[in-house]
């Protein structure tokens, strides 16, 4: 065997090993959670309120709470993020100020989520007097995922070929018409990818909702956006560390429901994205 072939084999082996090393933990997490959590899943668990100090009953209020929070965060962050991305990619010139703005947005994505939590507490709960509420929590989560949505949407807009813009403008279409009819429709798959990432992050974070919305124990459904709610990640934290003698299968069952909820919401976005990609024709 020649030297070249041997080094190729070695390189191939390490590349394969690295890929395997990523897959194994992910697979194990899913297997463990499904194995330990599945026995807890039944209709009562999904539809009932928590009972006996959260040691029995269901987690329905937390499911609904997480759903509301994620929905509210997207409702707030997607339009604002998209408009900001359009401004940054289509209108803002390439000057130092705009480069700093873009850099700042990318860096905001790396700010620890507990910092967003404190910020939400100061701004929404205290200063704007929204109290600990769905509104405060959604806005805080929305601000947390804004950088992800802006960055991915901007990349999606910028990846639409410049030639399409030139053709549209050369036909006498205005800049806004060009964005509206040519750039935006072709950027939708990429924008949805950003939304998927933001969605998963908003559903799973505990710290931003800790001070702004999450209730320790609240066995009823919210009546307005100014109510507190339970949320799955915080509930999981509570029954794992704050309440003694919770059965293991309830904890893993809650984790399984959270995982499934995120996967389900991602799946919806992925299906929408797939349908748009099919229409992409270049």
């Amino acid at each position: 065997m020649s030297n070249t072939q041997r080094s190729q084999k070695i390189a191939f082996f390490f590349l394969f090993l690295a890929t395997l090393l990523i897959l194994v933990p992910v697979g194990l997490i899913v297997v463990v959670i499904v194995q330990k959590g599945l026995p807890a899943i039944n209709w009562q668990f999904l539809s009932d309120i928590p009972r006996q100090g959260m040691r029995a009953g269901g987690i329905f209020p937390a499911i609904i709470g997480t759903f509301y929070l994620v929905f509210g965060a997207i409702l707030f962050a997607l339009p604002i993020g998209l408009l900001a991305a359009i401004y940054l990619s289509e209108y803002a010139g390439n000057n130092p100020l705009n480069r700093i703005i873009k850099l700042a947005i990318v860096n905001l994505a790396g700010v620890p989520s507990v910092v967003y939590g404190l910020f939400g507490l100061a701004l929404f709960v205290v200063f704007l007097r929204f109290g600990a509420s769905i509104l405060s929590g959604s806005l805080t989560l929305g601000i947390m995922i804004l950088p992800i949505i802006i960055t991915t949407a901007r990349e999606a807009l910028e990846s639409v070929p410049q030639s399409f813009r030139e053709v549209s403008l050369s036909l006498g279409a205005s800049k806004w018409q060009t964005i509206r009819h040519i750039v935006l429709p072709n950027a939708i798959p990429g924008i949805l990818t950003g939304t998927i990432l933001g969605l998963g992050r908003a559903a799973g974070e505990t710290a931003p909702i800790l001070f702004t919305v999450a209730a320790f124990y609240l066995p009823r459904l919210p009546k307005s956006i100014f109510d507190q709610v339970m949320a799955l990640p915080y509930h999981l934290y509570v029954i794992s560390t704050q309440v003694p003698n919770v059965e293991e299968k309830i904890r893993y069952g809650t984790a399984l429901v959270l995982l499934s909820l995120v996967l389900f919401m991602n799946l919806v976005a992925i299906i929408i994205r797939y349908n748009f990609r099919k229409r992409k024709k270049w």
Binding site: S163, F164, V167, L171, G172, K281
Partner: peptide
């Protein structure tokens, strides 16, 4: 926009927009 309506352009490479034949011409 008015100028570009009166002065049309055909580019070096065929650059159809990602639309149907009809919608390209109607754009």
């Amino acid at each position: 926009c008015g100028l570009r309506k009166r002065v049309g352009m055909v580019f070096a490479l065929p650059l159809p927009l990602p639309l149907s034949i009809f919608e390209n011409v109607a754009y």
